[in-house]
Design a protein around this nucleic acid. Structure first.
Lengths: 347, 347
DNA sequence: CCTTGGCACTCTCCCGTTGCGAGTGCCAAG
DNA sequence: CTTGGCACTCGCAACGGGAGAGTGCCAAGG
């Protein structure tokens, strides 16, 4: 019996602390939450919770604050993901509806998440390495250069300019480009990135001797673009939320902002999701390997067109965060974005 | 004679205050800068400078701090734009050299500026409205949709997907697309955005009756893309620098971060440059109309391919900022970026 | 008329002290 | 196992005095 109530107390502590950002004492607890017991009883429970390492008293005579482990228990066992209100769902749909292209989708998503949760929002661009080639377009520039436009099934576009090694008339150029366009799209369109690169290399050998140089430069640029990791990008919004987040938080804001500028690190973090792709992942405080983010929590989830998740998004804030709301928002937004990416409009 | 020395004193005050971030007194001044006069003389000058509103004493018995007007005089009359060292120039070139496309150029630029100046860096994307159409590419998607890829002379790419209103076989589709591609590029390629939209509308009427619907949807989507303001985008980096910037600065960091998230406002700010496009513009503290940025200064400059400036970039930091260095960095980077945009590689 | 040294004065900042209040741990009784 | 009571512990805010930095002003000297 006591076990149950102890967890109730833990939940109450978390809720109060999240709301007030001040250590919560036994008296305040029994007043605000109508647990059917007295302050003294709560104190006993608190002592036990402290022994278990779930809460912690900043000083001898202050209230209690949840530890990272305490939040972990709260998230895993004590909180239901609060469903969003009808209005909120509509707002999400409406806000994302107007996006015109992938950049716009990502941009709107990250701003939406930030304003919804009042935390820092993080959205990873749909990663190319898990994507397929939709189409490759070649555009002559002058007589000796060529712009390559790579269109990805997620709607993303990459471009490169290459020197063909030839110097042709307009007519010759058009013809050559047309041959290459056909050959390249024949083997690469619809093919996953990993396979596309090797397939493309094969066609260089099959090309007419005269076209060889052009094929080579185009294919090698494409291969570059396909394997390159640079496309792993994240977008942030809502950094201002860090400043008003908490009491002592503004002081530790520097390291956090610095950590957020290390996009490579962020990407690695976002990549480490739980097993179930359809579940919201929560990483709390010290569970987090990144220096500078150890006083923050990351609530994230994969998203993507179709059933496969191609990237992640989430929010980051102080460990003292409203987890149920954050989780609900992240999940809802991830789902909507996935839907939108499925739609033809922006893919 | 006294006029001159007073300005020397002002310069010394600005320099010391920028370095130490503490109010500077008469004694410290004569020690650090070998002005040939005594502390008492300096005090007299200070009293005059204060009357003129160029410096200000936080309390009766503290040192002096430059006012916004004081910084203004410093920037306009007392500081030479410090030329960068050879090493710095090389570093800039090297860092920007490796960029593969426009996104990458912008991304590297903003990070470079931030690390060079240790301030917040702001880079506006080359604006479409001052740009010209390089090429328009059409890519069939399924039997009834079409992806439009608009390639801008700055290297930027915009894409849209439209419903053609037709439902054709692959062969018919290819033929139609080919007709449209030719017709569209004939009138639009190389043309400034403003003119391109009207020209495009004209060709709808001239198209074959059967193609009319397809032309209409493509052209209207293009016209949308051409006039749309959404393309006005800014990228930020180095927000973390705000946190370690100054003593009391961390407190006011919240409003600043908030202001920085209002990209629309930032864009307007960046747009208001001085008359001479080749000059670095400095807006100091309260000269700045934006709420939340009134304790900051913006050092900015236009950049762009060719001789016309298509966008701006700059850095933003506390009014107590190392202006000569910031101005030098901004100018150097703006020039390099302009050069790169001129290069074929990424345009 | 400008410069300079001297001097009294005014602040802020730092530090140690004190009192208060919130919160705890423990205990004995129900 | 719960509850009320009680002594105890700290953090924190308020107060006060001392030190130091810097100023303004004045009278003397170039």
């Amino acid at each position: 019996m006591s076990e149950d109530r102890r967890l109730m107390v833990l939940r109450a502590i978390v809720q109060d602390y999240v709301q007030t950002s001040e250590p919560v004492g036994s008296k305040a607890l029994v007043e605000r939450h109508h647990l059917g017991v007295s302050a003294a009883t709560v104190r006993n429970d608190m002592a036990l919770l402290e022994e278990e390492g779930l809460i912690h008293a900043p000083h001898t005579s202050a209230g209690r604050v949840p530890t990272d482990a305490g939040y972990r228990v709260f998230v895993d066992r004590l909180s239901a993901v609060k469903p969003l209100s009808q209005g909120e769902r509509r707002a999400i749909a409406q806000f994302l509806e107007g996006a015109v292209d992938l950049d716009d989708v990502v941009d709107r998503t990250v701003r939406l998440l930030a304003s919804l949760t009042r935390q820092v929002a993080v959205v990873q661009y749909p990663s190319l390495t898990r994507s397929t080639v939709r189409h490759i377009e070649l555009v002559p520039i002058g007589t000796s250069h060529l712009m390559i436009v790579l269109i990805v099934n997620t709607g993303r576009v990459e471009q490169r300019v290459v020197d063909t090694g030839h110097d042709l008339t307009v007519a010759e150029g058009e013809a050559l480009v047309s041959r290459m366009r056909t050959a390249i799209n024949e083997v690469a369109a619809g093919v996953p990135f990993t396979a596309a690169a090797t397939r493309l290399r094969r066609i260089v050998g099959e090309a007419d001797q005269a076209d060889r140089r052009a094929f080579e430069s185009v294919v090698s640029a494409l291969a570059d673009a396909l394997v390159e990791e640079r496309e792993e990008r994240v977008v942030l919004a809502g950094q201002a939320n860090l400043a008003r987040s908490g009491a002592d938080f503004p002081r530790s804001i520097g390291p956090i902002l610095e950590a957020l500028e290390e996009h490579v690190v962020l990407l690695r973090l976002l990549g480490q999701l739980g097993d179930d792709p359809d579940l919201v992942s929560v990483r709390i405080g010290s569970e987090n390997p990144v220096t500078g983010l150890q006083s923050t929590s990351l609530v994230s989830m994969g998203y993507g067109s179709g059933s496969e998740r191609v990237a992640s998004l989430g929010v980051l804030g102080p460990t003292r965060m409203d987890y149920p709301t954050a989780m609900a928002s992240v999940r809802a937004v991830a789902r909507y974005v996935s839907e939108i990416l499925d739609d033809d409009r922006s893919t």
